[in-house]
Each structure stands twice: as C-alpha cells, then as structure tokens.
Design a protein around this nucleic acid. Structure first.
Lengths: 182, 182
DNA sequence: TCTAGATATATCGGAGCGATATATATGCGG
DNA sequence: CCGCATATATATCGCTCCGATATATCTAGA
C-alpha cells in the first residue's frame, strides 16, 4: 500500500463536489492553486489512473460528440482519504526564487545593477499581484470562503514582497558610493 | 551550445572568490541559499563535470591524506558567464506550500480544524524564522552585504507569514458558529 | 469553407531531490 | 590507544515534477 503524494490530494480536492475531466482539473488548478501548488498533465493523467485503481475516484465516460472524455468523481473512500490528509500537519514548503539568488551574488555587480535586480523582482511581483487581483471577484462569488482567503493571502504576500524589494532598492542606492553616469 | 540552468550559476557564484570541493559547495548552499534555492549532490557533481568541460571552472586535485578531493575554481570565462547571468532579469519563481493547499480545501473540515491548519503553518514558519535568526550573526561578520540582506529578507518574510497565519486563524474562529466542546 | 482556438488525453526528456552507498579522516570517551 | 561516531568527499538511483509536444475532435468566427 503505497501512500499518496500531495498531487493526488489536489485531484481529490478539485473533484470533490463537482466531477471533472483531467483537462478540467488542470484548468481548475491553473485558475486557483497554481501560485502555491501547480500540477501538470504529466502528473494528472497517470495519477487519475492510479486513484481509479485504488478506488478513491470513479471514472465515467461522458463523450462530447465523437471526442472521448472521462469525468471522475470522488468515492466515499476518496472522501475519507482526503479528510484524513487534511487532518495531518502540512509538510512540504519549498521556494525557488531566482531573483533572491541573483541578489545573493550581487556583490559581483556595481550597486546600481544590484538595485536593478530588485526593480525587476518588484515588477514581477506586481504583475502577479495584478493577476491575483483579477481572480478575486470570481472567488468572492463562491460560497466557499477558503479559496478566497488563500487568494487574498497571495495578494497580501505579493504586496509585502514588492514593498520589501522597494525598500531594499532604496537601501542599496542610499548606501552606495556615488556612481558616475558614463 | 546548451545554455546553463540556475544550478550552474549557484555553483559559479559559490566558488567565486574561494575555490571549493563539491562537498563544500553543498555545505555553503545548505548554510545560506537553501531556503530559496537548494541544490543536491545529484545536481552538483554532474554539473561540476559539465562546467569543467565547458571551461567555466577548473578542477585541481587537492587530496587530504589518502582521501581524494578536487577543488574547483572559477575561470575568467566562468566569471563572464556569471556576470552575464546576473544582468539578465530573473525568471523562475516557484512556491509549493502544502499548508495553503490544505487551507484551500478546508471547507471539508469544521472551522476549528481549519484553524488548526493555520496553527501548524504558523508553528512551522516560526521554526524556520528561528533557524534564520541563528544564521544572522555569521552572515553579519562578512564583508559582503548581500547575503545578509537576503537573509534578513527571509527573516522578515517568515515573520510576515506567521503573522498572517495568526490573523487568519482568528478570523476563522471569529466567524465560525460556536463549536461544542465534545 | 478555412482556420484558430478550445477541449481532451497521453507521453517524453530533463531537472530536481532525497536517500543511500562507499571510502577515508578526525575527534572524543573510555 | 582503541573503538565509535561524525565529518569529509564523491557518486548514483529512483522518484516526482514540469514544460513541451503529439494527436485528435469540436466550436466559433472571418
């Protein structure tokens, strides 16, 4: 009995309440949890097979015209499995931020260019912030308060991060020796 | 001419100024960038070979007694490559946070248990915060201000996150219908 | 009608990660 | 000074994950 990875629970959670095809699961992930937990087709389709064999989900053919399509719904066992996972303390927390890595090595650059790294990071964070803001109205419509709460957390986080970038940029420029404009 | 991935630049950055063995590179990463950019032996040793073949680093045998050991130093080409990378805008930003994923699906749980997720997340953030705080004195000794700046960013981030968890926990408990203590 | 884009499933290559295997060297308690 | 735990050093395996791509059908619009 091999235990399930977090990706399996993303699927279980996403089809809970509303059966979905693999394609729809991917779209749901991309439109909600993508910023803190992504999933690719390469994970989803094999995982659907495994979950189906384990009896945690059930697939039903539901073709659209001549195009085959399988929608999956969660089983009672699947619900139990999802609940049990939700009750376990979370384990994984990972972050990969290339901007911070560059900033870490920024002493190889003159201060003005180090500040440029922070400016680029800030611009990127603000762009993500705008995307999240755009997603908010849709999330606010729903009954479920948790996706909205998480989304607003993302909005607040990107704002905090953008602000940190701004402050650090100022700090670097303030403490830098004067640069000649060549 | 295959282009290098970020892991290659971690290596280049880490040996800049002070030649290191693969083992020492791993230790340097674990003691500094680990929280926003990790690297494993499985990446480091093959990458050292590739960088060496590409002429961006140079390996020199430097055995300790009967134990063989190769220290790598950066070449002039490697320095150029590193600088060119530092001047490119950062691309990757990824986050995988199981706690947020659970919170996203928390409507399957009673509010008290949803709050429990946030409590666990907060405890974890505070533990990481303590680790980062412990690393600060060492980083503050060095001449290079950027690693310290990044480290302090991590400290501030974990504090912000822990605070957010606390606020969201309160919010959930405040808006929840009264729970009977069974 | 032709085409672009959306729906739907599947798979491949590469990157990343944790764990482990294999040595040798060092330091510490007994 | 012996034995043992830990540190140094390199290498590799299996797994997950991700981006990209291949294939096919359906829909909407020029």
């Amino acid at each position: 009995m091999e235990q399930l990875g977090p990706t399996a629970y993303v699927i279980l959670g996403m089809i809970r309440g509303a059966p979905k095809s693999g394609y729809e699961i991917k779209a749901a992930v991309d439109g909600s949890t993508r910023f803190f937990w992504a999933a690719s087709y390469g994970q989803i389709y094999p995982e659907l097979k495994r979950l189906s064999e384990a009896g945690l989900i059930r697939g039903a053919d539901s073709p659209t015209g001549g195009r085959k399509r399988t929608v999956y719904e969660i089983t009672a066992d699947g619900e139990d499995e999802l609940l049990a996972w939700l009750r376990q303390p979370p384990e994984t927390f990972e972050m990969r931020e290339e901007g911070l890595l560059k900033l870490f090595f920024a002493s190889a650059l003159p201060p003005a260019e180090a500040a440029e790294i922070l400016r680029a990071m800030r611009a990127h964070r603000l762009a993500v912030n705008a995307q999240l803001q755009a997603m908010e109205p849709l999330a606010a419509e729903k009954d479920d308060p948790y996706p909205l709460l998480v989304l607003r957390g993302g909005i607040e986080f990107t704002e905090w991060f953008a602000d940190w970038c701004e402050r650090m940029e100022e700090q670097i420029l303030a403490s830098a020796p004067e640069q000649r404009s060549s």
